[in-house]
Amino acid sequence: MGKHPHIIKLDRSNGQREIVANHWLRVAEGCDDTIPAHTLLPLKEWLERRDELLGRADVGIWFAPDDEPEALGQDAARLSIIAVDFPAFTDGRGFSIGRLLRERYGFAGELRAVGDVFKDTLLYLRRCGFDAFEIRADKDVEEAAKGLDDFSEFYQGAADQPLPLFRRRGG
């Protein structure tokens, strides 16, 4: 929860990345009043106030590993930011969440990985559609960003490159 000072931001169109200041506050629960700008709400709470919040580009959602993208459905396409929490980097559910949001529900905004995020998870996250990475506070952000380049070619199609290698090989 809370607000990390920096995030790595990836431009999915050209692979450029930069380390930028973070403007978003992730909260465990909202408040009864108007939700302040730049708040990331739990999915459940956002869904309860959907009609009020759907038009607000300055409010986002965060997913826990057991939250279902199906619950958000096509509304995803109208959001500007979604965060997915990785309580432990070995909990791989968030990778499926990322791909479903991108590939099935048309989410085109910032997809941010939060929680136990560091160098060795970034490339798979990127492949699953993530383009913002809140690196764990005790890790070196610059070093972590290098993890995005661990591999330059991949066998499977995924959110970043829908065509598997076998459709590009020899081409």
Binding site: D91, G92, R99, Y124
Partner: peptide, 14 residues
């Protein structure tokens, strides 16, 4: 083998 090698979604299964 190729499909499963470094599959980004299934590297951290249960």
């Amino acid at each position: 083998r190729q499909w499963s090698t470094f599959h980004p979604e299934f590297a951290h299964l249960p």
